[in-house]
């Protein structure tokens, strides 16, 4: 029997990020949904939880750190990966303290993210 496909949510207000990541991750066998704001993404998460959430930090209304906190409050099983074009030591440490699974600076290669997601998927399947 084949394993259930992991569900990934990508949140970034630059729609090009979702457009590029969706096919790249689907090719690796994941189910992917993309969102351009944290509010809509959180509402969707309430309808149906995701295994992995990839979120940008700087977004209007609900930022990535808030997304991280709200999602982990709903389910500590979900792996939240932070992506940002404004990476600093302080932001990385804040994200980790709040439970982020990993933190990566933009721009990155799809392969870099795939490696992190593979690691998250392995932990989820253990």
């Amino acid at each position: 029997m084949s394993e259930k496909k992991l569900r990934i949510m990508v949140i970034d207000d630059e729609n090009i990020v979702g457009k590029r990541l969706k096919p790249a991750l689907e090719k690796s066998g994941y189910l992917v949904e993309t969102f351009e704001d944290g509010e809509t993404a959180l509402a969707r998460y309430d309808e149906e939880p995701f295994d992995i959430v990839v979120t940008d930090i700087r977004m209007e209304k609900v930022d990535g750190i808030e997304v991280l906190e709200k999602i982990l409050a709903k389910s500590d099983r979900t792996k939240v990966i932070i992506i940002t074009g404004y990476a600093t030591v302080e932001v990385a440490r804040e994200a980790l303290s709040k439970g982020a699974f990993d933190f990566i600076a933009k721009p990155f290669k799809p392969d870099d993210l795939r490696t992190i997601i593979k690691r998250a998927a392995n932990e989820l399947r253990q």
Partner: peptide, 13 residues
């Protein structure tokens, strides 16, 4: 041992 001092992809790079 605090989480904030764990290596992440960003810090390793």
């Amino acid at each position: 041992g605090y989480r904030k001092f764990r290596p992440v992809t960003y810090s390793v790079k």
